[in-house]
Simulated assay, not measured.
Amino acid sequence: MPNAANESSEGTGFQPGDGVVEEASELQEASSADRTPEEEFLAQMLAASGATNLKEAGLYDPAEVAAEEERIEEEMSPEERQAKAEHDALAAAFSMIRERSNEGKLTTPGTWAAAGIVPDHLIPVDFSDLAFDEIIAAQAASAAAKKVAEEAAQAVVADADADAVSADSSVEDVAASDSKADEAADENAPSVDEGDSLDSEIETPEWKLDDIKVLEGKQTYLYSSDYMTDTYAHWAFLAEEGDDALTLVDNAREESRLYPRPMLAASLSSKPYYWNAEQIEQAWQAVQESGSYPDINTCEASNGERYFYSTDYLSDAQAKALAEWYSVERYMNV
């Protein structure tokens, strides 16, 4: 999607900081006693950087920049304004997914609406559709680019291997074959122009969204795999879905299978569930009453701490022994 703001600013000659170059020069010429605290700070920044003006130092007057951006937006057509609003809202939506993932939270389309980032000309469901279209398109373009790169690399290796196999077994012929393989690799390696043509065959995605993952349930949830593991996302998903019986069962099975060990009941009091003792007991009752999870059982250590486990992965004796170890015996050996 084109950035209408950038397109509209082409040819204007404006660069951030243009309006403050003269001001910065005056700051350097003024004596320290005549400067305001703000002017003194800017003068010190300029002196430290060796720059002669704010632009050279990479410092811009926010008011000047904001005023210029406002002027550019006023000159846009209605279509350009809408395109810019959509672009900015999408950037905010994708940033929100990553920020919330870093905080251990999933994101739903409703989160975007509640945060007020949906453009005025769109209803929330239309913006949600737009966001998912962008995610799908960006990930498809990224996958296509990777496929082309892998096929090109495989072709180079295949050609080199074919030449090497046809070589004679003598030392001289082997040496000649190696040289030939190197030449073949050089000949088949994409040149700068060929690389450009490969790139031109695939539309470069505007967004880098390979990390954005989707979970479908009562709602659609999104998270970033750069900031949240798939396993934690699954637990957060269960917490959001509100199926307490399934949450207890999935956690008990995962602990029993992965480590293997029984799951401490009190662990459900932690993030992302935050259950109290009553909720844990109610979930266990729901598991028993459903009759759908015959492999889930419970045991207690000698100090009264309760555990849940799956008999698909642990026997009753193993679960009991491990519960005693984790709750009591390991502390005795410290």
Score class of each variant (00 low, 15 high):
residue 136 I to P: 00
residue 185 A to L: 00
residue 235 W to R: 13
residue 113 A to R: 09
residue 151 E to A: 07
residue 231 T to K: 13
residue 137 A to D: 07
residue 109 P to F: 09
residue 224 S to H: 09
residue 151 E to W: 01
residue 224 S to P: 13
residue 116 G to A: 12
residue 121 H to M: 08
residue 199 D to Q: 12
residue 118 V to S: 06
residue 173 D to K: 15
residue 171 V to A: 15
residue 129 D to I: 06
residue 190 P to H: 00
residue 218 K to A: 13
residue 216 E to K: 14
residue 235 W to Y: 10
residue 213 K to E: 09
residue 165 V to D: 13
residue 110 G to Q: 03
residue 118 V to A: 06
residue 166 S to W: 05
residue 127 F to D: 13
residue 161 D to Y: 01
residue 147 K to D: 10
residue 161 D to A: 10
residue 185 A to D: 01
residue 134 E to Q: 12
residue 240 E to C: 11
residue 243 D to V: 06
residue 132 F to T: 04
residue 197 S to K: 02
residue 202 I to L: 02
residue 104 G to C: 11
residue 213 K to D: 02
residue 194 E to S: 08
residue 179 S to D: 11
residue 239 A to D: 11
residue 124 P to K: 06
residue 181 A to M: 08
residue 197 S to A: 03
residue 226 D to M: 10
residue 142 S to Y: 01
residue 155 A to M: 05
residue 149 A to Q: 08
residue 112 W to Q: 08
residue 135 I to K: 10
residue 230 D to Q: 07
residue 126 D to S: 15
residue 141 A to K: 05
residue 147 K to F: 08
residue 135 I to G: 03
residue 221 Y to G: 04
residue 212 I to W: 06
residue 142 S to L: 03
residue 132 F to V: 06
residue 166 S to C: 05
residue 123 I to H: 13
residue 205 P to L: 02
residue 123 I to M: 12
residue 112 W to G: 09
residue 159 D to I: 07
residue 133 D to A: 10
residue 125 V to Y: 06
residue 203 E to Q: 08
residue 242 G to M: 07
residue 136 I to H: 05
residue 222 L to W: 08
residue 145 A to Y: 01
residue 225 S to V: 08
residue 125 V to C: 03
residue 194 E to M: 07
residue 233 A to Q: 09
residue 135 I to Y: 02
residue 141 A to R: 11
residue 142 S to K: 03
residue 194 E to Q: 15
residue 125 V to E: 13
residue 122 L to N: 09
residue 209 L to A: 05
residue 156 V to Q: 03
